[in-house]
Amino acid sequence: LFHARFEQAGLVDAIKDLIQDSDFHCRDSGIALRNMDNSQVAVVVILLEAGGFLPYHCDRRLNLGISLTSLTKIVHYAGDEATLALKANDNPDTFNLVLECLQTGCIIKYDIKSRDIDQEHLEIPKTDYAATITIPSAEFQRICRNLSQLLESVANEASEERIKFSSSGDIGSGSATLRHNSDLTGPIALTISLKYLVNFSKATALSYSVTLSLSSEVPQLVEYKVESGFARFYFAPQIGE
């Protein structure tokens, strides 16, 4: 039997524009998801430890193939205040989704067919980054959204005290600068697609701060810590940098 109740259903919203279907690996230690985005330039890794659920029960390993497109619709109509419970019995072909709206007491139940997802295994090596910078997640989202209104990609430059996001396009250029108190091994400058940063920043509601781990030769990491776990977004560097 598997049963998990999760109070941050907004997490689904943060990844729905990146991946359509994914296996949810359910273990006694928690739930994990690791998947490449549709355009094969980003990887989403989510870990939710068992302690973040009330309750959590999983007595055997289970892989649930879930359509995030469908899950998003279900969660969206329940509203932000809803809790989401996943249940599965010994039949791995179907699982139950139970949404509970705390304010009204309304309970919505679904029986969902598990999807057979042909998912390749991704191995993520441990990496030492040139810069690891933590900034308020709301500021990060504001900067990405603001710059993306007019421009397509952003150059990140980080020095010991400040991180600068600057961008230029047909209409001109723009930049935003933020103070930070993080450690850098040296100054760094690299270019990232704003479209993807805007997507990653949809996880803003999950955490007060976001950590950017940057190096020029390896995928950049955008990480949101959630209660008993994390949401990590890896993004491939531009070729020729």
Binding site: V43, L122, S193, Q238
Partner: peptide, 14 residues
């Protein structure tokens, strides 16, 4: 997107 690397080349299990 032009100039954008493929994430699979970094993370796929060899």
């Amino acid at each position: 997107a032009p100039g954008q690397g493929d994430i699979g080349s970094y993370f796929f299990k060899k």
